[in-house]
Design a protein around this nucleic acid. Structure first.
Length: 266
DNA sequence: GTTTTCTCCGCTCACACCTG
DNA sequence: CAGGTGTGAGCGGAGAAAAC
């Protein structure tokens, strides 16, 4: 299992061929590779998520949850004031169907229509069986189609966030939260400038100390957490003089960011 | 709601700082 | 004072279509 995950990662870095994708079907493409904070976070966690302790899980902490809930209630009045009617065209573009779904749709067209729920389920099962027997060459057209659709989707999404007002997004998210769905997050085209400490973390990562931490194996502890913890200790032990270049860089970046923001609003 | 597979993304951890 | 900003590995789950 661990080996297969490792192999998957190694493969991802160098190839995006169909062969690799078929060998490791769940592997995301290099282009769409995402990091936690590069990705916008939900303003509010999904209602179903719960904390189960300090361990690394996909659950949200309860404290964050309650405070977020409180701020949500606080904003209700504001939302009502700026209420807009949401039509279908205001909704964000839908994700494109995956390779299997593209195959599934074409498979359904080639089969007699299902008359009952049981028949539909049987069709889905048969489709998956057929899909599994397909060779790489036979799957290729579906991967190609999916690539085209994905590219189109990325463009549409950028366009959508560029043209959709905050009021509309708030209205959409209000409805989504009510249904227990994850909120739609605006994709920021110009991320905020990096802080002094984060600039230091980036340098620390490249340093010999940082590199050695990343190659150490401590069971149950993420390399990255070790690295940032060590970076925090180092940061606190640094003199103001040592820290000043980072603060200076941060200050400059912030100035530029603010200037660009001002220029954009004029 | 149910079935299928695949892709994408939310979330976790640590840290400090800054903005709204 | 919450949340966004950077780093990234890795897990879990939502959502995509179609039929009823």
């Amino acid at each position: 299992m661990v080996l297969s995950l490792l192999a998957r990662h190694l493969t991802l870095g160098t190839t995006s061929t169909l062969a690799a994708r078929v060998a490791f079907p769940a592997a995301p493409s290099v282009l769409t590779r995402r990091t936690f904070l590069a990705t916008p976070h939900p303003e509010f966690p999904p209602a179903t998520k719960k904390s189960d302790g300090a361990k690394t899980t996909s659950k949200k902490s309860t404290t964050t949850k309650t405070t977020k809930k409180a701020s949500s209630t606080k904003n209700v009045k504001k939302d009502e004031k700026s209420k807009v009617t949401i039509s279908k065209k205001d909704l964000p573009p839908k994700r494109p169907p995956g390779t299997f779904l593209l195959f599934f749709m074409s498979y359904l067209k080639s089969q007699p229509k299902a008359k009952t729920m049981e028949e539909t389920q049987a069709l889905a099962k048969r489709a998956s069986e057929v899909w599994k027997t397909y060779s790489i060459a036979e799957k290729q057209p579906f991967y190609d189609e999916n690539e085209v659709l994905k590219e189109q989707f990325q463009k549409e999404r950028v366009e959508y966030f560029r043209n959709t007002s905050i009021t509309t997004l708030k209205q959409i998210n209000k409805s989504r939260r009510a249904r227990g769905k994850v909120v739609v997050r605006r994709v920021t085209e110009t991320p905020r400038p990096v802080t002094a400490f984060l600039r230091f973390v980036s340098d620390f990562r490249k340093s010999t100390d940082g590199q050695s931490i990343m190659t150490q194996t401590v069971p149950g502890k993420n390399h990255n957490i070790q690295l940032i913890t060590a970076a925090g200790e180092r940061w606190r032990s640094m003199t103001a003089e040592d820290q000043s270049p980072y603060f200076e860089q941060s200050r400059k970046a912030r100035e530029e960011f603010n200037q660009a923001k001002q220029a954009a609003t004029v």
